[in-house]
Simulated scan of single mutants.
Amino acid sequence: MPRFNRKGITRILFATTIASTAYLPTRAEITGATKLTKSIAAVDGFSLENKTIDTPDLASKFTSKIAGDDEAADSSLTFYEDDIDDALETALAKGTAGFIIILRKGDVPASNSMDVYPVVVASKSSTITLDNEAAKFMVKFAITDTPALDAAVPAAT
């Protein structure tokens, strides 16, 4: 099985609107989305987790489990701060609703590797440090609905 490094392959975008109620963007919506990839320093979350339910019974000392509710992991993106252009800070202002589109294997049409998370920007804050590193800011997202996972990347026009 071939392996790959996400760096240089995976693409992350932010779209303010997606017409599909299934959260499947069109090629035009992907093309018009804000490209975030080059400015991202770290990604955290953007996954679903299941809260299993313990189901012990009197017949065994083993506590079995069943699947419970799904919930989104706490999710954030950390960006390199630009000392000239504040377009990302403006696009991702607190309270802004939209969609994080993750093309896990790159922009490969028909690949079932697109995840789309409906989000609201919960907070945006600068990361202030005296360490010898680039200036950064973190955006935390509230995932507002069940994301579209493993969706097909739309065909190129």
Rank of each mutant, 00 (worst) to 15 (best):
D85G: 00
R104C: 01
P56Q: 10
D74K: 07
I66M: 09
A41W: 01
L88E: 00
A72V: 01
D85K: 00
A97W: 03
S60Q: 10
G95V: 04
S64C: 04
R27A: 15
A42M: 12
R27S: 12
N50H: 09
S39C: 10
D54K: 15
A41H: 10
T26Q: 10
D82Q: 05
G98Q: 02
K65R: 15
K105S: 13
T96C: 00
I101F: 06
D44Y: 10
I84E: 14
Y80G: 02
D83Y: 03
L103E: 02
K35G: 11
E71Q: 13
T31F: 07
G98S: 01
D82N: 14
I101T: 04
T26I: 04
R27D: 15
D54Q: 11
I101C: 09
L58K: 13
A28M: 10
L58D: 12
K35L: 11
N50A: 12
A28T: 13
D85P: 03
Y80L: 05
T31H: 09
I102A: 06
D74P: 04
A33G: 10
G45F: 07
A73V: 08
G106A: 05
P56F: 09
T90I: 15
S64D: 14
R104Y: 03
D69I: 11
Y80I: 12
D54N: 14
L88G: 02
G45L: 05
D107M: 09
I101S: 00
T37S: 07
D69H: 11
D54Y: 03
A42S: 14
E29I: 01
L36H: 04
K94S: 08
F46H: 05
I30N: 08
P56G: 03
T55Q: 05
D83Q: 08
G106Q: 04
S76L: 04
K105C: 13
V43N: 02
A67T: 13
A42H: 12
Y80W: 04
K105P: 01
E29Y: 07
T34W: 01
K94W: 05
A97T: 11
A59Q: 10
G106M: 00
R104P: 00
A28V: 13
A87G: 03
L92I: 01
T34N: 07
A87T: 14
V43S: 12
G95W: 10
E49S: 12
S39N: 13
F46M: 04
I30V: 15
P56M: 06
E89V: 03
I30Q: 08
A73I: 06
I40A: 06
A28C: 07
N50D: 14
G106V: 00
T90W: 03
G45Q: 07
T52S: 14
A93Q: 13
E71S: 12
L88P: 02
I101K: 00
E81K: 15
D83L: 09
D70Q: 13
E29C: 08
R104A: 14
S76P: 03
K65Q: 15
L88I: 09
E49N: 11
I30Y: 06
K65V: 12
S47L: 10
K51I: 12
S75P: 00
T31V: 13
G32I: 05
E71G: 08
A72W: 07
G106W: 00
D44Q: 14
L36T: 06
I66A: 05
Y80H: 09
G95A: 01
T31K: 10
K51R: 15
K51Y: 08
E49C: 06
K38L: 07
I102E: 05
D85L: 01
E89H: 02
S60D: 12
A72E: 03
A41D: 10
